[in-house]
Write a protein that binds this DNA or RNA. Structure first.
Lengths: 332, 332
DNA sequence: TTGTACGCGTTATCAA
DNA sequence: TTGATAACGCGTACAA
C-alpha cells in the first residue's frame, strides 16, 4: 500500500503538503494540488487511518454492542445506528455478545483499546463495569436497558406503561387468568415490563399468582421452556403476555404442538413487533417499539456528548403502541 | 487514559520493559514484572491498539461485509464469522450495505484504510472493484456469491444442484406448472439457482415459460411484488420456487391475502432455511444452507492466506439439504 | 533491562 | 501566499 511519502515523492512535494491537500487546509496552489491529486489516483492511495487516528486522537468510529443478533429487534436498532453514524461521517464497529456478560466486557475493552470515539450499549448488564467506564470518561449511551439512571444517556421506551397497555388490552377482552413470561431478571427493561404486568392486574383487582409468571431467556428457546412450564399451571391461564416476540413465537409453537388453539383457547401477546409478527400466518398482537429510531437517536445523543455540547445525562423515551392482530383474539 | 509511559513511571522502569511484559517476551524478573502488573491494574491501563497496530502493521481485526442485516440469513453467517474470529484472537468489524453497491465500495475502502488484516465479503457485486483489491494484495474471501472464480477464495454451496433438488421435489409431487421467483440477476448465486430451475424443467421434459419467472430483490418486499406479478400469469402456476426464504414468506402472504390456499392451491418452496421457516405456523419447505459454518469456514480460509500457508485460491462448497415441511404439500 | 529509531500521518513553526 | 521542516502521538523492535 502506498504511503503519503510515495505520493509526495511522485508529486515532488513534501508529505506535509499532501496532508494539507487531503484535509483541505491552508493554501496550496491549484497547480500543485492537481499534481498531488493525480499522484493520489495514480497510486490509489488511501490514507492510513491508523496513523491518522494515532495523531488526531480520534478514530471517527463508534462502537455498538448488541446482545443477540439473531433476534430481529437488534438488527433494526443497528440499522438505525448505522445510518445515523454515516450521516455524521462515523464508521461503526458492531459487536454481538450473545447475552454473554464476560463477552460483553471483553468486547467493550477491545473497543476502548481501539480508541473508538464513543460507545452505544444495548442490553448492558453490569453497573459496576459501567461505573468504571464512567470514571475513565468514556462516552457512553445506553439503549433499551437503563442502568445508573441520571448518570448515563439513555434511549428507550416506557416499559412499565407499555407492558401495562398490553395487559390492559387482555383484561378488556375479558381475560381473568393472565400469565406472564418474563425475561432475564437482570434486565431493567424486563423488570419494568414485569411491574407493568403486576400494576395492570392490581388496578383490575385481579390477584397475582406466582405460577403464572415464568422466566425465560429472551430467545425462542427460552420462551419455549417457559411456556412448557407454564402449561403445568392449574387452572390454565387464558392469556399469556410475553416479554418479547421471540418468546411469544415460541409460546405459540408450544401451544400448537399441544393442540391448544390460539386465540380461541389461549390468547398471546408479545413485545417488540419484529417483522415476523406481521406475517399473515403469525399475526402476533404485540407492542411496537421504534427500534430504528432508537438506534438513530442514540447516535444523536452520543454526538452531543462527544462534541461537548451537553454534559448532563439525558433520557429519551420514545413512544410505543399496541398493535392488535389476531393472537389476542380481539378480532373474533 | 493512561499510556505506557505512565505505567513505566509508576513501576520505575522503561516503557520498553512494560511492553515486554505486556507481550510476554524476553525474560523480565518476577519482581519487576509484578511491579509492572500492579501499576497496570492501578492505572487501569489498556494498551493503545492504534499505536500498536501502526507499529506492528497488523490490526488483529478482520472485516465482514454483509448485504442485508434484516435477513436472518446474514446474522447467522456473521455469528459463524464472529465465533471463529474470536477463536483466532481477531476482532470483527461488521458492515451492512443494504444491497447498495456504492455503499459496499465505501465500506470496503474504509475497512482497508483501517488496515484490517483481511476481508470477508458476502454478496459481493462488482468484479472490477475486486480486481483492484486483488492488485493491491488485500486478503479477501468471498462468501455466498462467487466472483472471479479461481482467483479468490470462496465459501458457498452448489446453487445449481440445490435449486434443482428443490424443483425436482416439486416435479416428483406431480407439479407441471412450476414458477420461479429469482433474485437479482447480478448475483451469481441467484443465477445458478435459476439455471438449476431450468435444468430441472429440462430434464423432466417440461417447457420453460418466461412469464413463470419473475425477478425480485431478495427481500420481503421484492418477493411480494414478484408474487403479485406472477399471479397475472395464465394459466396459474401450481407451484412456486423462490430464490430465498424472505421472498417465499412474502409469496405466501400474497397468496393468503388473495384466498389462495397453500399448499392445496399452490405449493411454495424457499431457499436458506432461516429460523422463521420452521415456525409451526409457517412450515416452509426450503433448502437448508449451513450459514454458520459458511461464516466459520471463511475465517479459516482467510487465516490461511493471511499467514501465507496457502497462495492458491480455494473453493469450499458446503452441503445443502432439502427440508420438506408443509408448504410444498408433500405431507398431504 | 534500557535507549533509540521507527511506523505514518498531522500540525505548528518557519522560510521563501 | 505557498510550501518545507520537524516534532509529535504511543507502542514495538533491536542493539547495546
Amino acid at each position: 500500500m502506498a504511503t503519503i511519502k510515495d505520493v509526495a515523492r511522485l508529486a515532488r512535494v513534501s508529505p506535509a503538503c499532501v496532508s494539507l491537500v487531503l484535509n483541505n487546509k491552508s493554501y496550496v496552489s491549484q497547480k500543485t494540488k492537481q499534481r498531488i491529486c493525480k499522484a493520489i489516483k495514480q497510486l490509489n492511495y488511501r490514507p492510513n487511518i491508523i496513523a491518522r487516528s494515532l495523531r488526531k486522537k480520534e478514530t471517527n468510529s463508534i462502537g455498538l454492542v448488541i446482545s443477540d443478533i439473531s433476534n430481529p429487534f437488534f438488527p433494526e436498532v443497528a440499522r438505525g445506528v448505522e445510518d445515523a453514524a454515516r450521516k455524521y461521517g462515523l464508521s461503526l464497529v458492531l459487536c454481538n455478545t450473545n447475552a454473554d456478560q464476560s463477552l460483553e466486557r471483553k468486547h467493550i475493552d477491545v473497543l476502548l483499546a481501539k480508541q473508538i470515539d464513543g460507545l452505544i450499549l444495548t442490553s448492558a448488564r453490569s453497573e459496576s463495569h459501567l461505573e468504571q467506564y464512567i470514571k475513565e470518561n468514556c462516552y457512553l449511551v445506553l439503549v433499551n436497558r437503563e442502568l445508573l439512571p441520571g448518570r448515563l444517556d439513555f434511549v428507550g421506551i416506557d416499559n412499565l406503561a407499555s407492558a401495562k397497555m398490553a395487559v390492559d388490552h387482555l383484561i378488556k377482552l375479558g381475560h381473568r387468568r393472565i400469565a406472564f413470561i418474563r425475561g432475564e431478571p437482570a434486565s431493567s427493561a424486563s423488570f419494568r415490563r414485569y411491574e407493568g404486568y403486576k400494576l395492570a392486574l392490581e388496578q383490575a383487582k385481579m390477584s397475582y399468582t406466582d405460577n403464572f409468571v415464568k422466566t425465560g431467556y429472551l430467545r425462542y428457546a427460552g420462551g419455549y421452556q417457559a411456556m412448557e412450564s407454564l402449561l403445568q399451571a392449574r387452572p390454565y391461564p387464558t392469556a399469556v403476555f410475553c416479554a418479547n416476540d421471540m418468546m411469544a413465537l415460541a409460546a405459540i409453537d408450544v401451544c400448537l404442538l399441544k393442540g391448544i388453539r390460539i386465540p380461541q383457547d389461549l390468547a398471546i401477546v408479545g413485545f417488540d413487533d419484529i417483522w415476523v409478527a406481521s406475517l399473515r400466518n403469525i399475526q402476533l398482537t404485540t407492542v411496537h417499539q421504534p427500534r430504528y429510531l432508537m438506534g438513530a437517536k442514540s447516535v444523536d445523543l452520543l454526538i452531543e456528548i462527544i462534541t461537548g455540547k451537553r454534559t448532563q445525562a439525558k433520557r429519551v423515551i420514545l413512544p410505543t403502541k399496541l398493535v392488535v392482530r389476531e393472537t389476542c383474539g380481539a378480532s373474533l
